[in-house]
Protein backbone atom coordinates (compact mmCIF):
# COMPACT_ATOMS: atom_id res chain seq x y z
CA UNK A 1 0.00 0.00 0.00
CA UNK A 2 2.78 2.38 1.02
CA UNK A 3 4.75 1.51 -2.11
CA UNK A 4 1.66 2.23 -4.29
CA UNK A 5 1.21 5.68 -2.69
CA UNK A 6 4.88 6.59 -3.23
CA UNK A 7 4.69 5.42 -6.81
CA UNK A 8 1.51 7.49 -7.43
CA UNK A 9 3.17 10.60 -5.92
CA UNK A 10 6.21 10.00 -8.09
CA UNK A 11 4.11 9.78 -11.25
CA UNK A 12 2.23 13.01 -10.35
CA UNK A 13 5.56 14.75 -9.71
CA UNK A 14 6.95 13.46 -13.01
CA UNK A 15 3.81 14.64 -14.82
CA UNK A 16 4.08 18.10 -13.28
CA UNK A 17 7.74 18.30 -14.17
CA UNK A 18 6.88 17.29 -17.74
CA UNK A 19 4.21 20.01 -17.99
CA UNK A 20 6.64 22.58 -16.60
CA UNK A 21 9.41 21.50 -18.94
CA UNK A 22 6.96 21.51 -21.87
CA UNK A 23 5.78 25.04 -21.02
CA UNK A 24 9.37 26.17 -20.73
CA UNK A 25 10.31 24.65 -24.06
CA UNK A 26 7.22 26.06 -25.84
CA UNK A 27 8.02 29.46 -24.34
CA UNK A 28 11.49 29.35 -25.89
CA UNK A 29 10.40 28.32 -29.37
CA UNK A 30 9.81 31.19 -31.75
CA UNK A 31 7.99 30.67 -35.02
CA UNK A 32 7.94 33.47 -37.58
CA UNK A 33 6.05 33.30 -40.86
CA UNK A 34 7.14 36.04 -43.22
CA UNK A 35 4.13 37.57 -44.91
CA UNK A 36 4.31 40.88 -46.68
CA UNK A 37 3.21 42.79 -49.72
CA UNK A 38 6.07 43.81 -51.93
CA UNK A 39 5.70 46.88 -54.12
CA UNK A 40 6.05 46.82 -57.89
CA UNK A 41 9.42 48.26 -58.90
CA UNK A 42 9.62 51.41 -61.00
CA UNK A 43 12.05 50.01 -63.57
CA UNK A 44 12.23 49.68 -67.32
CA UNK A 45 10.77 46.41 -68.62
CA UNK A 46 13.34 44.26 -70.42
CA UNK A 47 12.15 43.05 -73.86
CA UNK A 48 12.67 39.35 -73.14
CA UNK A 49 10.32 36.43 -72.43
CA UNK A 50 11.51 34.46 -69.44
CA UNK A 51 10.62 31.04 -68.05
CA UNK A 52 10.76 30.99 -64.25
CA UNK A 53 11.82 28.04 -62.13
CA UNK A 54 10.81 28.31 -58.50
CA UNK A 55 11.85 25.01 -56.89
CA UNK A 56 10.01 23.63 -53.90
CA UNK A 57 13.08 24.41 -51.82
CA UNK A 58 12.37 28.08 -52.51
CA UNK A 59 8.59 28.11 -52.26
CA UNK A 60 8.56 26.05 -49.06
CA UNK A 61 11.72 27.52 -47.58
CA UNK A 62 11.97 26.94 -43.86
CA UNK A 63 14.86 28.02 -41.70
CA UNK A 64 15.50 26.40 -38.34
CA UNK A 65 18.13 27.36 -35.81
CA UNK A 66 18.67 26.40 -32.23
CA UNK A 67 20.53 29.06 -30.28
CA UNK A 68 22.18 27.41 -27.25
CA UNK A 69 20.72 28.45 -23.89
CA UNK A 70 18.24 30.75 -25.61
CA UNK A 71 15.57 29.63 -28.02
CA UNK A 72 14.81 27.72 -31.15
CA UNK A 73 13.77 29.72 -34.19
CA UNK A 74 11.70 28.50 -37.12
CA UNK A 75 11.25 30.97 -39.94
CA UNK A 76 8.94 30.25 -42.87
CA UNK A 77 9.91 32.21 -45.96
CA UNK A 78 8.34 30.21 -48.80
CA UNK A 79 5.25 32.35 -49.47
CA UNK A 80 7.19 35.58 -49.17
CA UNK A 81 9.77 34.30 -51.67
CA UNK A 82 7.06 33.53 -54.20
CA UNK A 83 5.25 36.85 -53.70
CA UNK A 84 8.40 38.97 -53.85
CA UNK A 85 10.09 37.27 -56.80
CA UNK A 86 6.92 36.67 -58.81
CA UNK A 87 5.88 40.33 -58.67
CA UNK A 88 9.42 41.48 -59.36
CA UNK A 89 9.97 39.35 -62.47
CA UNK A 90 6.48 40.11 -63.84
CA UNK A 91 7.47 43.79 -63.90
CA UNK A 92 11.05 43.29 -65.05
CA UNK A 93 10.33 41.17 -68.11
CA UNK A 94 7.87 41.64 -70.94
CA UNK A 95 6.54 38.10 -70.40
CA UNK A 96 7.06 35.46 -67.73
CA UNK A 97 5.86 31.89 -67.48
CA UNK A 98 6.43 29.14 -64.91
CA UNK A 99 8.46 26.25 -66.29
CA UNK A 100 9.54 23.01 -64.67
CA UNK A 101 13.06 22.54 -65.96
CA UNK A 102 15.69 23.36 -68.56
CA UNK A 103 16.16 22.47 -71.41
CA UNK A 104 12.66 23.61 -72.29
CA UNK A 105 10.06 21.41 -73.92
CA UNK A 106 9.69 21.84 -77.72
CA UNK A 107 6.52 23.92 -77.12
CA UNK A 108 8.34 26.50 -74.97
CA UNK A 109 11.69 26.32 -76.77
CA UNK A 110 10.85 29.02 -79.32
CA UNK A 111 8.38 30.96 -77.18
CA UNK A 112 10.85 31.96 -74.48
CA UNK A 113 14.19 33.77 -74.65
CA UNK A 114 15.65 32.35 -71.47
CA UNK A 115 15.04 30.55 -68.21
CA UNK A 116 15.73 31.96 -64.76
CA UNK A 117 16.15 29.74 -61.72
CA UNK A 118 16.13 31.40 -58.29
CA UNK A 119 17.40 29.77 -55.13
CA UNK A 120 17.71 31.04 -51.58
CA UNK A 121 21.23 29.99 -50.67
CA UNK A 122 21.84 31.52 -47.27
CA UNK A 123 19.80 33.00 -44.49
CA UNK A 124 21.37 34.35 -41.32
CA UNK A 125 20.02 36.41 -38.49
CA UNK A 126 21.02 37.85 -35.16
CA UNK A 127 18.67 38.60 -32.33
CA UNK A 128 20.08 40.74 -29.51
CA UNK A 129 21.09 39.00 -26.33
CA UNK A 130 21.77 41.98 -24.09
CA UNK A 131 19.69 45.12 -23.77
CA UNK A 132 22.56 47.15 -25.20
CA UNK A 133 22.10 45.64 -28.67
CA UNK A 134 19.74 47.86 -30.56
CA UNK A 135 18.90 45.96 -33.73
CA UNK A 136 17.74 42.61 -35.04
CA UNK A 137 19.74 41.91 -38.19
CA UNK A 138 19.05 39.64 -41.15
CA UNK A 139 21.32 38.75 -44.03
CA UNK A 140 20.25 36.61 -46.94
CA UNK A 141 21.68 35.54 -50.25
CA UNK A 142 19.83 34.37 -53.33
CA UNK A 143 21.39 32.81 -56.41
CA UNK A 144 19.96 33.63 -59.83
CA UNK A 145 20.93 31.34 -62.68
CA UNK A 146 20.06 32.35 -66.23
CA UNK A 147 19.96 29.71 -68.97
CA UNK A 148 19.40 29.69 -72.69
CA UNK A 149 16.18 27.82 -73.60
CA UNK A 150 18.32 24.81 -74.63
CA UNK A 151 19.85 24.65 -71.14
CA UNK A 152 23.17 26.38 -71.82
CA UNK A 153 24.31 28.41 -68.83
CA UNK A 154 24.49 32.18 -69.35
CA UNK A 155 25.33 33.40 -65.88
CA UNK A 156 25.12 32.60 -62.18
CA UNK A 157 24.59 35.70 -60.06
CA UNK A 158 24.53 35.76 -56.23
CA UNK A 159 22.44 38.62 -54.82
CA UNK A 160 22.47 39.47 -51.15
CA UNK A 161 20.35 41.70 -48.95
CA UNK A 162 20.71 43.06 -45.44
CA UNK A 163 17.98 44.27 -43.16
CA UNK A 164 17.82 45.55 -39.64
CA UNK A 165 15.06 46.55 -37.33
CA UNK A 166 14.89 48.17 -33.93
CA UNK A 167 14.42 45.69 -31.15
CA UNK A 168 11.08 45.33 -29.53
CA UNK A 169 9.31 42.02 -29.57
CA UNK A 170 11.96 39.76 -31.12
CA UNK A 171 9.59 37.95 -33.51
CA UNK A 172 8.13 41.19 -34.89
CA UNK A 173 11.56 42.78 -35.20
CA UNK A 174 12.86 39.72 -37.03
CA UNK A 175 9.87 39.84 -39.37
CA UNK A 176 10.51 43.52 -40.16
CA UNK A 177 14.26 42.96 -40.65
CA UNK A 178 13.60 40.03 -43.01
CA UNK A 179 11.17 42.09 -45.10
CA UNK A 180 13.76 44.91 -45.29
CA UNK A 181 16.41 42.40 -46.42
CA UNK A 182 14.04 40.95 -49.04
CA UNK A 183 13.21 44.43 -50.33
CA UNK A 184 16.95 45.08 -50.62
CA UNK A 185 17.35 41.87 -52.65
CA UNK A 186 14.45 42.96 -54.87
CA UNK A 187 16.07 46.38 -55.28
CA UNK A 188 19.38 44.83 -56.31
CA UNK A 189 17.77 42.40 -58.77
CA UNK A 190 15.53 44.98 -60.41
CA UNK A 191 18.24 47.62 -60.82
CA UNK A 192 21.37 45.55 -61.47
CA UNK A 193 20.17 42.50 -63.40
CA UNK A 194 20.65 44.07 -66.83
CA UNK A 195 24.03 45.51 -65.78
CA UNK A 196 25.69 42.12 -65.29
CA UNK A 197 28.19 41.84 -68.19
CA UNK A 198 27.01 38.41 -69.37
CA UNK A 199 23.36 39.47 -69.19
CA UNK A 200 24.11 42.77 -70.92
CA UNK A 201 25.73 40.82 -73.78
CA UNK A 202 22.86 38.32 -73.91
CA UNK A 203 20.28 41.15 -74.00
CA UNK A 204 22.22 42.85 -76.81
CA UNK A 205 22.19 39.59 -78.79
CA UNK A 206 18.43 39.37 -78.35
CA UNK A 207 17.99 42.98 -79.49
CA UNK A 208 20.19 42.34 -82.55
CA UNK A 209 18.24 39.20 -83.41
CA UNK A 210 14.94 41.07 -83.05
CA UNK A 211 16.22 43.91 -85.26
CA UNK A 212 17.44 41.41 -87.86
CA UNK A 213 14.14 39.55 -87.98
CA UNK A 214 12.35 42.90 -88.36
CA UNK A 215 14.59 43.83 -91.28
CA UNK A 216 14.32 40.44 -92.96
CA UNK A 217 10.99 38.90 -91.92
CA UNK A 218 10.58 35.21 -92.64
CA UNK A 219 8.08 34.56 -95.40
CA UNK A 220 6.39 31.23 -95.98
Amino acid sequence: MEIMRISRHRSIATGLLGVLAGTYLVGCASVVTIEAEFPTPVVETLPVRIGLIFDEALTSYEYYEKIPQQATWTIYLGNANETMLGGLFDTMFVETRAVDAVPLTPTDLYNLDGVLRTELEKFEFEVPISKRDEFVEVWMQYRLTLYEPDGALIVEWPVSGYGKSETGKSEEALHRATVVAMREVGAAISTRFAEQPEIEYWLQERRNAAALSADFPLTN
Partner: peptide, 13 residues
Amino acid sequence: FEDQLYPWFEPSL
Protein backbone atom coordinates in the same frame (compact mmCIF):
# COMPACT_ATOMS: atom_id res chain seq x y z
CA PHE B 1 6.22 57.06 -50.59
CA GLU B 2 8.89 54.36 -50.31
CA ASP B 3 6.51 51.83 -51.88
CA GLN B 4 5.46 54.14 -54.73
CA LEU B 5 9.10 54.87 -55.56
CA TYR B 6 10.37 51.33 -54.92
CA PRO B 7 13.24 50.44 -55.20
CA TRP B 8 14.83 53.90 -55.43
CA PHE B 9 14.43 54.93 -51.79
CA GLU B 10 15.62 51.63 -50.27
CA PRO B 11 18.68 52.04 -47.98
CA SER B 12 21.21 50.91 -50.60
CA LEU B 13 19.83 53.03 -53.44
